[in-house]
């Protein structure tokens, strides 16, 4: 990085791969692999929000789960504050888990319906042996207050709350152990428009107050751009473009990023922009195309794109903007 005195990254991914075995054929003998995450390298700085955008099946959620080690990646390094978490066993991992927490998409399925909200939010303290019952209760009430829920919520059950309130409960639980990094996987996709903005504001306020770093995974580019400092675009298990949020929006370099930006329906009935409609569907990560993974849908593909996979490289004149495309668009 060429910025002087750039702080060491909080999180550094080096060539992370997550290949799931796919058994098929007679007696499930033939084995291929689903290359959900296929060599991702990126950095997340302290206090920064990195947006991770891509369509269903691009591997963005799998990558998030690798980072919080709900998956053990099949290759690569996950350096958190200098320590490689990728290969640690469960016991060695436990003290690190408090620093990396996750907020899930579905606030119904991610909360145990048989526990009170107080028990749900206190569970991290129990697991990590923090405080006695009275102290835990106090900290739970503090957390509920921080996410905008009344103290009375602690004694009620998840079903008594709306989707937006349940997402607040999930955020309170994730914050319990004062993590440094929150992986937010589609945190507002399941919420109604008027509730989305309430939860996005909460996440922005918490970041300012607590100095949190976010990996913000979502498919809605407008939402991601609003909360992110930098944005990574993922396609078929790889990062195809990474740039500061405003820069990515103002001058996207990768043909996939351009198509994605142009495909978003804008809430402006007088919009006159030209829409790039991509042909075809995303190929399967079990049998990804040779060469550039995007070439079968790319309007600019050349012979070279069909055989040679492009590496991420800095865009001319922009050290902070990287793109994996053979063409200079």
């Amino acid at each position: 990085m060429d910025t002087p005195a750039a702080p060491a990254p909080l999180l550094q991914l080096e060539n992370v791969q997550m290949h799931f075995p796919v058994r098929e054929g007679l007696f499930l003998r033939s084995q291929r692999s689903c290359r959900a995450v296929d060599g991702v390298s990126l950095q997340l700085r302290a206090g920064e929000t990195l947006g991770l955008v891509g369509e269903s099946g691009c591997g963005k959620s799998t990558l998030g789960k690798c980072i919080v080690r709900l998956h053990q990646p099949t290759a690569g390094r996950i350096l958190f504050a200098g320590t490689d978490l990728a290969t640690l066993g469960q016991t060695a991992l436990k003290p690190w888990r408090r620093h990396l927490q996750m907020v899930f998409q579905d606030p119904v399925e991610s909360l145990n319906a048989r526990h009170t909200v107080g028990e749900i939010v206190a569970e991290p303290f129990v697991i990590h042996g923090e405080g006695d019952a009275r102290e835990r209760r106090e900290r739970v009430l503090g957390l509920l207050d921080k996410v905008g829920l009344p103290a009375a919520a602690a004694d009620r059950y998840p079903f008594e709350f709306s989707g937006g309130q349940r997402q607040r409960i999930g955020i309170a639980r994730a914050l319990a152990l004062r993590p440094r990094l929150l992986v937010c996987d589609e945190p507002v996709s399941a919420l109604d428009v008027s509730i989305q903005s309430q939860v996005l504001n909460l996440l922005l306020d918490l970041q300012r107050e607590l100095g949190l770093s976010y990996l913000f995974i979502a498919h809605n580019l407008a939402v991601v751009k609003h909360v992110s400092d930098r944005i990574a675009i993922m396609y078929l298990g790889r990062i195809v473009e990474l740039a500061p949020a405003d820069e990515l929006y103002a001058s996207p370099r990768h043909p996939y990023t351009r198509a994605l930006l142009s495909a978003i329906p804008r809430p402006d009935p007088r919009g006159t922009r030209e829409r790039i409609v991509l042909q075809g569907d995303v190929p399967s990560p079990i049998n990804p195309p040779a060469g550039c993974p995007f070439h079968p849908r790319c309007p600019h593909a050349t012979d070279r794109c069909r055989v040679e996979a492009p590496a991420l490289r800095p865009a001319p004149g922009h050290a902070d903007h990287t793109v994996s495309c053979h063409l200079d668009l």
């Binding site: 306020d205 609003h226 929006y249 930006l261 804008r266 809430p267």
Partner: peptide, 13 residues
């Protein structure tokens, strides 16, 4: 209340 691509980043909605 909807975030817009051309809006100011990280501003409260």
């Amino acid at each position: 209340s909807i975030p817009r691509l051309e809006g100011t980043r990280k501003a409260r909605l």
